[in-house]
Write a protein that binds this DNA or RNA. Structure first.
Lengths: 229, 229
DNA sequence: CGGCTACTTGACATCTATCAACCGGGGTGG
DNA sequence: CCACCCCGGTTGATAGATGTCAAGTAGCCG
């Protein structure tokens, strides 16, 4: 696993070096194997987590087993908002991941002492809120084909922004994860991917996909602005 | 229209009186009639808005006319996050409303100068994010009946928390708004309400509804935690 | 009273879910 | 080394929920 550290990723370029150092000091890097749960919905949030490396699915479960994947967290993301007292969703690793753990109390104290970090948190929350709202639009109004197409394009864009993009777009999550993210059934996702492949706008490869024209498809271009899933 | 003022509502009890005074000073109260648009998606956010009185729908439109209602804002809510440079959704009045307008530049300056307000903003964003995530769960996994039932219960809870609740629950928004909020069609909402009425868990009245046992219904109780729509 | 708008109800179409079979690769153990 | 099994994924047939189209009702305002 490549070395990467959440504090650096979260703070970005223009960060007060002293604050970055403090954030680094508060962080403990932990490693989790594929499928491991970092925390569960309802858990006391006495720790906060930030993702250094890998992909994590954030999801909610209903008593009858239905699941909604809220997001796929990428390096640089907080896993939920710090300062909350309980986790409002569960998080588990897709593949191997590295996360930074923060003591809730210490992190809270640090945040309260640092206006710069507060601003970054507001920006982060604003961005996540935007993403959630784009996803609402998709879940509420999209056909299966639109959902899958836009998911692929947005995922690709996100990876691109993090320079995690090779020729083929990796899809480390399972079909079931995509289905639960899009409010579809696994079979529908599979069929829809097949349909897009027949249309020659994607090519399926093991653990990934090649986008060969999907972004130019009316399915996608008809949405003025690409959601930042 | 009853007098109510966004700064007071937003700041809540435990607020530094000086900061409250400054926020009041920056606010200009405006009034909009039913259906009027406060701002539209994509507009430059050179002003920020907070709701003093009434109900506002926040929504996104697709080029083909499909609409997703993201939320129904109530008094005390910011209409979107301040500090963003563009509005990521549109907002228009449901019935008569009073909103506070803030100059984007002034508000930004004030926020940056006030850690307390930043913390409130982080809390506000966290709450809105939670609400959006609950709604994702609903849109992704709910049947029409669940969607409508949970919408009613949550709406009722929200009004209750603001003490805006009489015996009958007011529904100032149109069926079409509810449909677009829940990712359903207007006819489906209508039919589903009728079905719930036949089951004797609600009673429809003009511009409102009576919840006569809905909250005890498995549709609702099977969700461990009521979404804060 | 007339016409508008919101809402309701009905008949039918369509999409996705459901149930079931099948495929293929990777790991395990005989 | 090969057979088997398990898991993730694909594909097919059918069913059911919601969407679509259309007609009809109720309340409101001019």
């Amino acid at each position: 696993m490549r070395r990467a550290f959440f504090p650096t990723l979260f703070c970005g370029e223009a960060c007060d070096p002293l604050e970055l150092r403090e954030l680094r000091r508060l962080a403990t890097q932990l490693y989790f194997g594929a499928g491991k749960t970092i925390f569960a919905e309802g858990d006391l949030a006495d720790s906060a987590f930030g993702l250094s490396q890998g992909v994590i699915r954030l999801y909610k479960l209903l008593p009858d087993g239905r699941r909604q994947v809220l997001a796929f967290a990428l390096p640089g993301d907080f896993l939920g908002m710090p300062l909350a007292d309980r986790h409002s969703f569960s998080a588990d690793a897709i593949g191997e991941v590295a996360v930074c753990r923060f003591s809730g109390a210490d992190l809270t104290k640090f945040i309260r002492s640092s206006p710069n970090i507060m601003l970054r948190l507001i920006e982060f929350a604003t961005r996540k809120l935007d993403m959630a709202q784009d996803q609402l639009l998709l879940l509420g109004n999209g056909s299966a084909e639109e959902k899958v197409a836009i998911f692929l394009v947005s995922w690709c864009n996100r990876l691109g922004r993090l320079s995690m993009l090779s020729e083929t777009v990796p899809l480390p999550m399972r079909r079931q994860d995509i289905a639960d993210f899009l409010g579809l059934k696994l079979e529908t996702v599979s069929r829809t991917l097949a349909k897009l492949e027949q249309k020659k706008v994607i090519r399926l490869v093991p653990n990934g996909v090649l986008l060969t024209g999907l972004a130019q498809t009316p399915l996608v271009t008809s949405r003025s602005h690409q959601p930042q899933i």
